[in-house]
Structures are given as C-alpha cells and as structure tokens.
C-alpha cells in the first residue's frame, strides 16, 4: 500500500507542475490565481499521502487542514485585491488615474 501512496503523490506532483505552466505563462492575473488555488488543492492531498507514508497521519492531518484554510483565504484575498488593480507594481492604469485625480 505504501508504494501505491508514493506513486499517487508522484502523479499529484506532476499534475502540480502542469498547473505551474499556467502560473508562469498565464495571460491574465486571474489565471494565475486559480492555478495557484488548484496547486494548493493538490498539495492538501499530497500532505495526506505523506502522512500515510510516514505513518504519522494524526500529525499531518492538522497541517493539511491548516493548509486548506490558508489556501481558501489566500484565493479570496487575491481575488479581492486584483479586482481593482491590474498588478501589484506602481505604474498600473489604476494607480496613474488616482495620481492624476489627486494632483
């Protein structure tokens, strides 16, 4: 059974690499956000597999629960943040408009 769990986690890591393509080359910011969310979901499952392999599920399940919570909050926060701004860098359209309005 341990080999099966190890095999499944390797497949999950490979799928996370596929999602990483969208994070790096995604055309819009929103693509990157949902890809990071998808990677977080896969990581939650991978953490549980790791716990099964090491035989310490009661410890890893807490980490996985915290990771799922953080993933959800990070997705919500990023969605709310990028709703009005196109980028975290200054010089975006919104930033320039606001500077013009102030001056």
């Amino acid at each position: 059974m341990d080999n099966f769990f190890l095999f499944s986690s390797v497949i999950l890591c490979f799928l996370a690499l596929l999602c990483l393509y969208r994070v790096v080359f995604g055309p819009t910011v929103m693509d990157r956000i949902i890809s990071v969310g998808a990677i977080g979901n896969k990581t939650t499952a991978t953490l549980l597999f790791m716990g099964m392999i090491y035989g310490r599920v009661e410890m890893f399940v807490d980490i996985a629960l915290a990771y799922a919570l953080l993933n959800f909050i990070a997705t919500l926060g990023a969605a709310k943040f990028f709703r009005v701004r196109k980028s975290i860098l200054p010089g975006s359209k919104y930033f320039q408009e606001r500077k013009r309005r102030i001056s």
Binding site: T28, V29, M30, I33, I34, G37, N41, T44, L48, V61, A64, L65, A68, L69, F72, T75, L76, A79, K80, F82, R83, V84, K86
Partner: peptide, 23 residues
C-alpha cells in the same frame, strides 16, 4: 477537510469569477 473543501471551493470559484468580471 473534505467537507471544508466542499464548502470553500465553490465560494472561492465564485469570488474569483466575480473579480474577473469586475476587472
């Protein structure tokens, strides 16, 4: 964890969708 994923994932999807429409 499973129940939490079941509740949280549609909500996050909805939030990002709305943010995409707004931006």
């Amino acid at each position: 964890i499973a129940v939490f994923i079941f509740l949280a994932n549609p909500t996050a999807t909805h939030a990002v969708f709305k943010a995409g429409l707004d931006s």
